[in-house]
């Protein structure tokens, strides 16, 4: 038999308010590798958990700039060198006429950046996760509010952390295996 590795502890809380208060205490107690789970984003949770702002904006700006640059390059190259046809008396390089496609490609690339950048930052798609084995956790996408503390946290101890989670309002504390 293989030894089962420990993922961490899972605790359920009553409502968004209880969750946010619990998290503030976890943070103040010095825990780092913990995470909350809720069926909707909770206002103020990011600062309660003490996590840094998302960097997604920069990814999107970079992608948008790439889209814009490719649109300019594509249109200029096609119109000025690859397929030189004068239409409706316009110059081969008519920047005015290139604006619509520039805009569209900028938005398209930026949109890809937003969606796939979000996936990348979140490590999705990830069809298997230890938490999925937990029965109680299934309500996390409907009406349950959870905290996990991972065993990799330096302050983690099975009994100590479990007791702490209970003290800060945890309704149930369960062990999650890898």
């Amino acid at each position: 038999m293989t030894t089962v590795k420990l993922y961490g502890l899972l605790a359920e809380y009553k409502d968004p308010s209880a969750l946010i208060h619990a998290v503030e205490k976890l943070r103040d107690a010095g825990y780092k590798n913990f995470e909350t789970y809720s069926p909707f984003p909770i206002h103020g949770m990011d600062s309660a958990m003490g996590i840094k702002d998302s960097v997604l904006g920069w990814i999107v700006v970079a992608c948008g700039a790439t889209g814009l640059a490719s649109a300019i390059a594509l249109q200029t190259w096609v119109s000025v060198s690859a397929y030189r046809v004068v239409t409706s008396g316009k110059l081969l390089f008519s920047f005015q006429a290139f604006v619509p496609v520039c805009f569209e490609l900028m938005v398209l690339f930026a949109g890809f950046g937003a969606v796939f950048g979000m996936f990348a930052l979140n490590g999705l798609p990830k069809l298997y996760h230890p938490l999925f084995k937990n029965h109680r956790f299934r309500t996390a996408t409907s009406h349950g509010f959870f905290v996990t503390v991972e065993s990799s946290d330096s302050r983690f101890s099975l009994e100590g952390t479990a007791r702490f989670l209970q003290e800060i309002g945890g309704l149930s504390v369960e062990v999650v295996e890898e």
Binding site: S88, G89, K90, Q96, A97, V99
Partner: peptide, 12 residues
């Protein structure tokens, strides 16, 4: 402003 300019520029 771009639309106004653009449509007039194009139709000329």
């Amino acid at each position: 402003s771009f639309s106004q300019y653009f449509l007039i520029w194009y139709a000329n």
